[in-house]
């Protein structure tokens, strides 16, 4: 839905006149919005996020019980709309939470993020923060989701090489029954795809083989899991592991395979934009998120796996995507065009 409060022309006029609007009456699209009002409200923390309300609500409630008096205004938007809200339109939000590490990094690199240092942020591992402006609070690998109906007791592929062999050996059974993200639509999918392409040449072979079997392209993890569970798909590649994990209790018929060659690990990150007004509440939320690994009950509720260096070290295949200027490379217009061109050529034959 388009957030329609004022027309764009009207809004531009107001900006020209220098009138500060307090609400997010801008031209970016939001998907949902929910206000968690505090009983004795002292301030409002405005969050713009790509994370579903279901997943984040337990965190908001726990945060409010530790920080009474802070109402939380939670706005959900896609990662590109979030970027455009802050980068282009200068919308007022106190905290930006996104799974698009590249866009969050670009916010910090281009000077749209505030620095914040505290004991909880200092305790984060070096790979889980950048410039004291981008703070990671989850680590979510991209996994393979397979249909129990399709595989039954058969051997399941453990790595990309085996997956390619499976596709080559059983083309007739698999034609039209493999799914993956449409990287042109999903920011997280694009991030996973670009990282996969960096990690291994097998990514391009896999994409080509999937393309040759008329792979179906999806916008969201939920749709892929639905189709895998129903058996319509044999497997879906690069599904967000945390989401698949959270669906296991509600949906049956699928299994989660963590490949053993490598697993790209996406970090969900928080940024305090320079336009933030309620900075204290935003910093308290950053501290809260940075200490998620000390709240196992909350992690179960939200289904968001916290930063856990031990788990990372125990599995050699886990490759957390590095925060840093290199994430800007695939945001480069020419680079992005070239990558999407190659990807489209490979997946649509």
């Amino acid at each position: 839905m388009r957030f329609a409060g004022l027309s764009k022309t009207m809004m531009r006029l107001m900006l020209v006149l220098g009138i500060m609007t307090h609400t997010a009456a801008f031209g970016f699209e939001i998907e949902d919005q929910k206000l968690y009002a505090a009983t004795n409200e002292t301030s409002v923390l405005r969050i713009i996020s790509t994370t579903d309300i279901d997943a984040f609500e337990p965190i908001i409630l726990a945060y409010q019980s530790e920080n009474p008096g802070i109402s939380v205004d939670y706005t959900i938007a896609s990662s590109t709309e979030l970027m455009s809200a802050i980068y282009v339109e200068g919308a007022v939000f106190d905290l930006a939470i996104s799974s698009a590490m590249d866009l969050q990094t670009k916010l910090a690199n281009d000077g749209f993020a505030r620095s914040y240092v505290s004991a909880p942020t200092a305790a984060l591992p070096d790979w889980a923060k950048w410039r004291d402006q981008v703070f990671a609070f989850t680590q979510e690998p991209a996994v393979l989701v397979i249909s129990e109906r399709f595989f039954g007791d058969d051997d399941v592929p453990r790595n990309r090489q085996e997956l390619i062999e499976l596709l080559r050996n059983r083309p007739e059974q698999l034609r039209g029954r493999v799914g993956t993200y449409d990287v042109r639509v999903s920011g997280a999918a694009y991030l996973f795809a670009t990282q996969d392409s960096r990690n291994s040449e097998s990514y391009w072979r896999l994409t080509e083989v999937m393309g040759s079997l008329d792979a179906r392209l999806y916008c969201c993890s939920s749709d892929m899991i639905r189709d895998v569970a129903s058996g319509e798909l044999a497997f879906a590649y690069n599904v967000l592991g945390s989401y698949a994990e959270s669906q296991k209790h509600a949906t049956s018929g699928f299994r989660i395979i963590e490949m053993d060659d490598f697993l790209s690990v996406m970090l969900r990150t928080a940024v305090i934009p320079t336009s933030a007004e309620n900075i204290t509440a935003a910093e308290a939320m950053v501290d809260f998120l940075a200490t998620l690994n000390a709240r196992p009950a909350l992690n179960n509720l939200s289904g968001l796996p916290p930063i856990d260096e031990v788990a990372l070290r125990s599995n050699n295949a886990l490759r957390p995507i590095r925060l840093g200027p290199e994430l800007l490379v695939f945001l480069d217009r020419l680079k992005r065009d070239a990558f999407l061109r190659s990807w489209t050529d490979a997946i649509q034959q």
Binding site: P325, V329, K335, A338
Partner: peptide
């Protein structure tokens, strides 16, 4: 045209 090399930026990071 240009295909921005990943290493060109990552070396700075």
């Amino acid at each position: 045209s240009l295909e921005l090399p990943y290493s060109a930026i990552s070396m700075l990071g």
